[in-house]
């Protein structure tokens, strides 16, 4: 289900001294079945933009059309739109409120008025989609790990059966394993379940690895839309707005600056490896096997940790202890 955004402007608290122009003249299409990433520095309007996709926010100016529904039409049933366009907020685990995973994931489908058997079916399917088993059903969402709670929260949106899934920084605050789990689930939702996915992220590596198209926002304006390769080719522009490019892309640029004839449009580690093998392996300037770094470990262990504390360990004497 495609989404069209036409000349969208959103102003928070218009007419007050606190007025903020969060979006200005943004036109964008989310194509049916695609994987779109939205990137932009903090405060650039990403969250504001995606809340227009399911009618949680109304445009100050401009139009949003979801499938064949024009959201500016007051008669549109917003609940239907929200069922079709599932929106997962940042830190979605903070909205869990039920005593069991089952009850929480069932919240959405119940609101949509499905009969109990259908609700159960949807809950199980949604949990399966995020890779959680039936043994989760009766547990409390407050006793799960960070990555698990977040998957429960995503399941809560998937249980409504959306065609489009919009995720706002779904990996924020997770450890590397939790991040990988979530990302591989999202990839599967797109590849295996055929969902249209819109991913808001600050991680350029994730964009390079997952997205088919990228939209770049800066201070409420749409800077560019294109394939990851096209977008990351604009390294200067991305650096200027403070986003940067994936690490491997940067490495290739640095190599090129040092005079090596390498391609700089690589996006992933695999592509970088192939390119390095091509360049260094072929002309034999470096025997590759010896040049390879020991897999992922750093001898120096990174910056010193432990042992150092802030100035002074205690509070100054006097006062406080009171009468």
């Amino acid at each position: 289900m495609p989404i069209w955004v036409e000349d969208l402007t959103h102003i928070y608290l218009p007419g007050t001294p606190m007025e903020v122009v969060a979006l200005e003249g943004v036109s964008l299409e989310v194509r049916d079945g695609e994987f779109l990433a939205i990137i932009g520095p903090t405060g650039s309007g990403k969250s504001t933009l995606i809340q227009h996709f399911n009618g949680l926010l109304r445009p100050t100016r401009g139009r949003v059309v979801v499938g064949d529904l024009d959201l500016s039409d007051r008669r549109v049933n917003l609940r239907r739109v929200r069922q079709q366009v599932g929106l997962v907020f940042q830190y979605p685990e903070q909205q869990l409120f039920e005593e069991t995973v089952l009850a929480d994931v069932a919240f959405g489908p119940r609101n949509l008025g499905y009969p109990p058997e259908e609700v159960d079916r949807r809950v199980e399917q949604a949990l399966e989609m995020v890779g959680l088993g039936r043994e989760m059903l009766e547990r409390s969402p407050f006793e799960l790990s960070g990555g698990e709670t977040r998957r429960v929260a995503i399941a809560g949106v998937l249980a409504m059966g959306p065609r489009v899934l919009v995720l706002d920084e779904p990996t924020a605050g997770l450890d590397p394993r939790g991040r990988q789990e979530i990302l591989s689930r999202i990839r599967a939702l797109h590849a295996d379940y055929g969902l249209t996915v819109v991913l808001v992220t600050h991680q350029m590596e994730d964009v390079a690895r997952l997205a088919q198209r990228v939209a770049v926002l800066d201070r409420g304006r749409l800077l560019m839309v294109g394939s990851p390769r096209e977008v990351f080719a604009q390294a200067e522009m991305l650096d200027r707005v403070g986003l940067g490019t994936p690490v491997v892309t940067r490495v290739m640029r640095l190599l090129q600056e040092r005079g090596w004839q390498v391609r700089t449009d690589v996006l992933t580690e695999e592509e970088a490896e192939a390119e390095l093998v091509r360049v260094f392996g072929e002309n034999g300037r470096l025997p590759l096997r010896d040049a390879r770094l020991p897999g992922g470990t750093r001898a120096d262990g990174g910056p010193a940790s432990g042992g150092t504390r802030g100035p002074g360990g205690g509070c100054p004497p006097g006062g406080g202890d009171g009468p």
Binding site: N54, R79, R82, F89, F107, G156, V157
Partner: peptide, 27 residues
């Protein structure tokens, strides 16, 4: 933010009688 997140899951805080509305505040 929480209200929006629950609305994204189809919650409705406006309709229904007093009891329904009070219960809709739980989430």
């Amino acid at each position: 933010k929480i209200m929006k997140a629950q609305m994204a899951r189809g919650a409705d805080f406006q309709s229904g009688n007093v009891i329904r509305r009070a219960r809709s505040m739980v989430p």
